[in-house]
Computed example of a mutant assay.
Amino acid sequence: MVDTTAVPREPARRTISNPYLHRLQRRHFLLFDVAPIAGTAAALALIPVLPFGATEIGLLIGMWIVTGLGITVGYHRLFTHRTFTASPLTRTALAIAGSMAGQGGVVSWVAIHRRHHECSDREGDPHSPNLSGDGLRGVLRGLVHSHFLWMRRHEYPNIAHYAPDLLRDRRVVAVGRRYYTWVLVGLALPTVIGGLVHLSWTGAVSGLLWGGLVRIFVLEHIIWAINSFLHRWGTKPYDSRENSRNGGVFALLTFGESWHNNHHAFPESPTFGLQWYRLDPGFWLIRSLQAVGLVRDLKTPSADRIASKKVTA
């Protein structure tokens, strides 16, 4: 009989870094972070020759809402923090909607965000703006890193360590494996709709640009601003060990994500606004899904717990 007690198990590596992963990161960065910038510039430059009106504005706003709610309600509140329980069909729909945003596959996104919460504003945080030195130069370097450049190359959180629950969910894993397909679907839908509405190839191109690339560009920079600006500036009504801040004025634009200090203080909460009068479209959707029986078990913090973390002067 072999005595296995004499051989201590190696702890699972929390992050992975190798040339193959870095190549994948650079490719994703170019395709889904840089290309939308070029697409947005092209859309603006081509306004005089391509259709631009109610259809294009509707496609931009409509696809932005669908994919934005997929990120905040699906990727973030459901899959990362498990703030509520959803039916299998709802989980799949939210995973697909989030995938169409072009911000990474669901399992990878969750692993990266859980790593962020574990190490927030400390060594190991993949996108903190507060680790690049002091002074104006350090602030600017940190903001550029956290807002955009960190995605070019970074240590990849071990999904077996950070997202084992999702790896056991066959539906979510299946959606994640088809991530690039869902991004293409998110680009194809506005292209087809634009072409059918205008009955022209120019309408299809305009739909692709405004409902696809411009929409990805707008949503990305809204979400990235949470990582960068709201870890430096804003209000901090609740005690949290890192530098998360609230930017309530941007609540509608961010689907409630800008209540960022609230979220870090109560990461298990499905409501980021915490109070009914704080605008939180992500929570409105969760409540609506609850009303029709598609979600349940909302882990809303009690009034006493909220009060206990209130920062006092």
Rank of each mutant, 00 (worst) to 15 (best):
H260L: 14
V292H: 06
L94Y: 06
C119Y: 10
D33Q: 13
N243Y: 14
T312R: 08
G203K: 02
T92P: 08
R287D: 08
A163V: 10
M1K: 01
R13T: 13
T5V: 01
N227H: 06
L59Q: 01
A188S: 13
R26K: 13
A204W: 01
Y277L: 02
G74D: 06
D169V: 09
L143Q: 14
N243I: 15
F229K: 01
W224R: 02
L285F: 04
A163M: 09
G256A: 09
P237D: 12
K236E: 15
G211E: 01
I57E: 07
A54W: 07
P190G: 07
D33E: 11
R296K: 14
W276G: 00
H231T: 11
L131E: 06
T254G: 13
Q275P: 00
Y179I: 11
H264Y: 07
F255L: 14
W259T: 10
I223Q: 04
L289G: 09
R115G: 03
A307Y: 03
G138D: 06
T191R: 08
A86R: 02
C119N: 12
N227Y: 03
F250R: 04
I71M: 10
A43S: 15
L46G: 09
L24C: 14
P281N: 05
R13W: 03
L252K: 09
W233D: 12
H260K: 12
A303T: 13
G142P: 01
I65H: 05
S240C: 14
S108P: 07
L230W: 02
Q25I: 12
P88A: 09
L274V: 05
Y20D: 10
W201V: 15
F84I: 06
H116G: 05
W109G: 03
G212E: 03
K299C: 11
